[in-house]
Structures are given as C-alpha cells and as structure tokens.
Design a protein around this nucleic acid. Structure first.
Lengths: 199, 199
DNA sequence: CTATTTATTGAACAACTGTTCAATTTATTG
DNA sequence: CAATAAATTGAACAGTTGTTCAATAAATAG
C-alpha cells in the first residue's frame, strides 16, 4: 500500500529543523518557509505533516521535554544507589549540562507563548510537572533507603525546581562569566542544603 | 517656529499603544501597522518617531523599568524608617502588586529577545541591575541603622532577586491559584529569612 | 504489471511585513 | 498675513506570511 511509512521520521526531521532555525532566527519569526528552506523541501510538505503552525510549536515543546528527560536517564544509568543518582542529577541540573540542553532564547519564547495560548500553557506546564514528579520520585527513593530525610518529596521537588528556574533566569542578567559561575555554584549549594546534603 | 513640540507626548503614546497591543497579540507579532490602528494614525507616523522597530522595543523596555521603579518610590514615600521601607518593599515584591505591574507574556518575550540581540540584552540587564542596585542601597541603609545585619548588600540583593525571578517563573507552571499563593508565601518567607527578618 | 497510496512538488492566494517618500495639513512665530 | 517648521497623511515598495490545491513522483501490495 503505497510508500513505506516514513511519516514519523519526516516529522522528527521537520521539528529538528524548526528548532535549529528558531535558534538562529527566533521562535516567533521562524516561518514555515524558512523551515522548508533549511530542509530543502517545499513549504506545502511541512503543512502536509503539521496542519497548522501551532501543531508544529506543540511538537517542539515535546521535543524539548525529551531532551531534558535524557539527563534523568543518564543519572539513572550511571549510578546504582538512589543517593548517587540524586547527587549526580543535582550536579547536572546546576551546571552547563542542563543549561546547554535547550536553547535559552527558544525556551523563553515558548514560555512567553504560554500567556497568550492556553493550549501552550497546558503543554508547557505538563512538561515542567513531569520533570518535577520524576525528581520527586527519586527523593522518595532516597528517603526510603534513609539516605536523606524528606517528609514531603513533592514539596521539596517544587522548591528545588523553583531555585533552578530562578537560577537560569537570573544568571543571564549577570554580565561576566565569573559572576554567572559563582551564582550557579551558590544556588547548587542552597539546593544541597535544602536536601540536607551539605558537606 | 512651527508646531509646538508634542514629540515626547506622542512617543509616549506610541509606546503605550505598543505595550497594549503586545499584551493582546504578543510582542513579536505586534506590527507597526497594528500599533497604528490602535492609535488611529498612519504607520508612517510611528516610523517618523521611531526609525526602526528595534528602537520601539528598546523604548518599551524602558517603559517597563519606569513601572517597576514606581513600586520602590511607593515604599519610600509611605515609610520613614529604612526597615519599614524594606519590609514594605518585600511585601510588594512577593505579591500581586509586583506581578501585575507588567504583563508576563510581554515581559518574557522581551527577555527571550535578549538571546538573539545583544542590544536588547544590554538594555534588559541594565534594568535588572538598576533594580538590584536600588534594593542593595536600601539594605545598606538598614545595615547602617542596625536594623539588619548585612555584610554584603550587593550579594544579598542578588540573592533576593534570584528568588524573585524563580518565584514568578515557577508559579505560572502551577495549575491552581491556591498552589500559586502558597508558593508566593513560602518564597517571601525564605527572603525574609535570608535578611534575618523571620518572625 | 497494475492499482493504490503516500510523498512531494510547484504554483497560487490574499493579507500582512517594515520602510520609504513626496504631498499635505496644522500650528506657531515674526 | 506670510514664512517656517513640525505633524501627519496616503500611496507605494518588494518581500514574506500561513494555507490551499491540483498535479506529479515514488514506492509498495495484490
């Protein structure tokens, strides 16, 4: 029955091109035509796979989540003990690893869209929550083994993520790399303190 | 010699219309034509006052700073003692007063532009810094009167603003008003704790 | 080989983009 | 009133926007 189904591959290719173009041009000024040019295809082919531009943006936010989840996987795969996983994860989160995962400009543009389009808000919050829940479940594991004392894992996870959000918004307002590194270090310490892991 | 100089009034009017249109349509998709329509004037008149769209955006960021500075003025005018000023300011910052001052969507869109256009980064960081410096100087006053013990006012001001940035980014990812209010309350307490003002 | 289905093209659409510029209106000054 | 200078208009520019649609190319199934 017709061509082999390469739909999913193409869709992925388009989202990736969307992301790459958005890094250079900005999310809101990345047009379907520009994405098409990046891939050397016709704009109508993109519309064939994503009926509207909003569908395309939604797919990009999903793409973003996948990238962040990889950091969790990495911490899980390279460690056996829950506490080691947690420490490894905190180290990743408060470091360039995390910040370089997804382009800042694209990320904050997508976040800004949340205030105009309820569908985007839902999508974006869902991602944010999924990461918090995953973190919370790791905290619970650590509490069970007695590695940390955490009565309310959900609450604690929220606090860590609020520090994380603040950190990355804030450091981009600092002018020197040295100031940025110093602040990143300080907020990591604050997180470890909150978890009762200060050395 | 010619018409009376209403240049400044018109420029202000245009920026205000830009802001109002951006709230509804989004910052990046607010065109000169749309602003003109809001004011019932010709697009070319806007270009007459702001040669490029970038100039217009820069003016909008300045407009934003003015609004935030008003909260400081208010705290200064309604109090005499530095400590009262500080407490009043913290209360404003971690409340709807602060959040409602400038539209979130427009604010984060402007922030996102920072990563593509160095001129915007400079402008935006300058505003952010100006607020921190103002806050820092109030901390110094409080330290001088002995109301608080603050060895490094700049450092402390930075930490409070980092909490503030995190708070407002984070609460928009929470789904219920109750959760949002609770987090706002918690981060205000954390700030007061940092200042040694926990009751 | 043929029929079917999907992938892809290419042209077209009206609407909108940021800018430019000459012409006109308006108010103030001498 | 006449001269001047700024405020404002209105038309035009080439390029881009998101979408639509019929035509064509390509691959697979019977």
């Amino acid at each position: 029955m017709g061509l082999s189904n390469i739909t999913e591959i193409r869709k992925r290719e388009i989202v990736e091109a969307f992301y790459q173009t958005a890094i250079k041009e900005g999310l809101e000024s990345t047009s379907i035509a520009k994405i098409a040019k990046t891939l050397n295809i016709q704009p109508s082919l993109i519309v064939h796979y994503y009926k509207t531009k909003d569908e395309l943006i939604t797919a990009l936010i999903d793409h973003c989540l996948e990238l962040y989840l990889k950091i969790f996987e990495k911490a899980y795969l390279t460690n056996e003990d829950p506490l080691d996983m947690l420490v490894s994860l905190i180290n990743s989160m408060f470091s360039k690893d995390w910040n370089d995962l997804f382009d800042d400009g694209v990320y904050y543009s997508a976040y800004a869209m949340v205030f105009r389009e309820p569908a985007f808000r839902e999508k974006f919050s869902k991602i944010h929550k999924e990461l918090r829940v995953k973190f919370s479940s790791l905290l619970k594991d650590c509490d069970n083994t007695g590695a940390i004392n955490c009565k309310n894992p959900n609450e604690t996870a929220n606090r860590i993520f609020f520090l994380l959000d603040g950190t990355y918004f804030f450091i981009n307002m600092l002018s020197t790399q040295k100031e940025q590194d110093e602040h990143l270090k300080q907020s990591k310490l604050l997180s470890l303190e909150m978890l009762g892991l200060k050395k």
